[in-house]
Simulated assay, not measured.
Amino acid sequence: MSRRVSAIDIGSNAIRMMVADLSETAPFLHIDKKFRAPVRLGHDVFTSGSIGHDVMEVAKATFRRFAETNQKMQVQKCRAVATSACREAKNRQDFVKAIKEVSGIEIEIIDGTEEGRLIHLAVRKEVDLDGKKTMLIDIGGGSVEVTFSQGPKMIATKSFPMGTVRVLENLAKRKMNESHLNIIMGEFLAELGEHIYQNVDHDPVDFAIGTGGNLECLGQLKVQLLKRTPSTFITLAELTEIIDRLRALSIRDRIEKLGLRTDRADVIVPAAVLVQTIMRQAETEKIVIPAVGLRDGLIWSMF
């Protein structure tokens, strides 16, 4: 007996949906379809504090399509959650209400701890964590969640307001560019360093785990730029090499020569530098990329 469910992740850089079948017998979860709409809520929220009219209209149209998909694919239950950008938007309740009116879909605005818990749930189903101490890094558009696990048990999680879209807006506001990224990172190092130090001081991590679209993209870039496989993990040395190669290319070149999407080409270097910074702080040499994220965690939460 299986039932069809869908999960919607309303992030700061995009809105993503996944439709899956849940079954009481193995393999328990079968993914039917994934969708991604490049709706950058973070641009408005991190510059003006609210979701603007134009972005609101695009989001409404996206949710109309998602509601039609739910109907067409006979989805029995849909869970939609909003993260960093919505958490901070002054008009978040108007947004939630507008989406409900046009699509019938109810949005939950979740905090960073719940976000970390759901992503950890997805990772736990995909990566064997038994007997390992791990650090999970989820790079979003508005925030970064850093979660520590001892075996499959989550022991600490913290959300930092240093997501990729937020970093871009911060650079633009201060008339800086990518070459100034380390200045922005430096402003978060004390708080980030404290969280890492508290959790790895006497017990270092065996490896890091990276989630989010940018991490998956970095795995593919390892194959494309460095001609090394597999794409499912990156060493710190390889990450540094990828950053150097990307920095040598303009955003236009990243789109034309590497085939990156427009809304990936401008955030990929901030994402890579964030991961590099966190790995250096934790003194870990390897990051595993399981290609799961918040949507997968939402699906499992309905199991």
Rank of each mutant, 00 (worst) to 15 (best):
Q150C: 12
Q150Y: 12
Q150P: 04
G151S: 11
K153S: 10
K153C: 08
M154H: 06
I155L: 08
T157Q: 09
S159G: 10
T164N: 07
R166Y: 09
V167P: 01
L168S: 04
E169K: 14
E169T: 11
E169M: 13
E169A: 07
N170Y: 08
L171E: 07
R174W: 03
K175W: 03
N177V: 15
S179G: 10
L181H: 02
N182Q: 08
I183M: 10
I184G: 04
M185H: 12
G186E: 08
G186S: 11
L192K: 03
L192N: 02
H195W: 03
Q198P: 09
Q198L: 15
Q198C: 13
Q198D: 13
N199T: 05
H202L: 15
F207Y: 12
A208R: 03
I209C: 01
I209N: 00
I209R: 00
G210N: 03
T211Y: 04
T211F: 03
G212M: 02
L215R: 01
E216M: 09
L218M: 14
G219Q: 03
G219E: 01
Q220F: 09
L221R: 02
K222V: 05
V223W: 07
L225Q: 06
L226V: 12
F233G: 04
I234P: 02
L236E: 05
L236I: 10
E238D: 14
E238R: 09
T240G: 11
T240N: 12
E241Y: 11
E241F: 14
I242E: 00
I243H: 01
I243F: 05
D244C: 15
R245Y: 13
L246A: 04
R247S: 15
R247F: 14
A248V: 15
L249D: 05
S250I: 15
I251Y: 06
I251S: 14
D253W: 06
I255Q: 07
I255L: 02
K257P: 05
L258Y: 04
L258M: 12
G259D: 13
L260S: 01
R261W: 03
T262M: 14
T262Y: 13
D266G: 08
V267L: 11
V267C: 04
I268Y: 01
I268S: 00
V269N: 00
P270H: 10
P270R: 06
V273L: 09
V273N: 02
V273K: 09
L274D: 00
V275F: 00
V275K: 01
V275D: 01
Q276W: 09
M279P: 00
M279C: 05
Q281D: 08
T284Y: 02
E285R: 11
K286G: 04
I287D: 01
I287R: 01
V288N: 02
I289A: 00
V292K: 02
G293Q: 07
G293K: 02
